[in-house]
């Protein structure tokens, strides 16, 4: 019986080592100068801090990769979330969006933050600073709605 457990543990450890050789597809940070949200639009300091803390890891080119994001299988999850996140919204490339895409994205920010769909639960679990309070969410929602009005009038 004990031998059986030993073998199982060795197998798991072996598997753990093997999966490290599979590339995670973790993206690089490639900042684009002059296109980030703060240089294109007005972002109050408080809102800026909130979105930097709670959103930028997946929705910008300023992703902080903690040590465990280099270890499979977590690296796979991180890679998937960051790639998906940037595809839907990249605050570092805000200036590249058309007027329509800006409006649509601001509406999504307002909705997803307001209705607690974002940040993702699994992300909040590992990053307590992304656990937005009600007031924080209200601030972001208000900023997104006001910015949409401004973009519309541009």
């Amino acid at each position: 019986m004990r031998k059986w457990i030993m073998n199982a543990l060795i197998a798991v450890a072996g598997l753990f080592v093997i999966i490290q050789f599979f590339p995670s597809g973790r993206p690089q940070n490639k900042p684009v100068t002059g296109k980030d949200i703060a240089s294109v639009t007005e972002v109050p300091e408080e809102v800026g801090n909130l979105i930097r803390q709670a959103c930028f890891d997946c929705h910008s080119q300023n992703t902080r990769f903690p040590w465990y994001s280099y270890v499979a299988p977590v690296s796979w999850l991180v890679a998937k979330d960051v790639n998906n996140g940037r595809k839907n919204l990249d605050f570092s490339k805000w200036g590249e969006l058309s007027k329509k895409d800006k409006l649509k994205t601001l509406d999504e920010i307002s909705e997803m933050v307001g209705e607690e769909e974002m940040p993702l639960k699994i992300y909040i679990l590992m990053h307590s600073e992304a656990n937005l309070k009600k007031e924080d969410r209200d601030l972001i929602v208000q900023w997104a709605d006001e910015t949409a009005e401004k973009v519309f009038e541009e």
Binding site: K100, L103, K104, D107, A148, F152
Partner: peptide
């Protein structure tokens, strides 16, 4: 509002 309407219409398209 016009702003929200534009957003929703583009979301429908998407």
């Amino acid at each position: 509002s016009k702003v929200k309407m534009v957003s929703k219409l583009d979301k429908i398209n998407e």
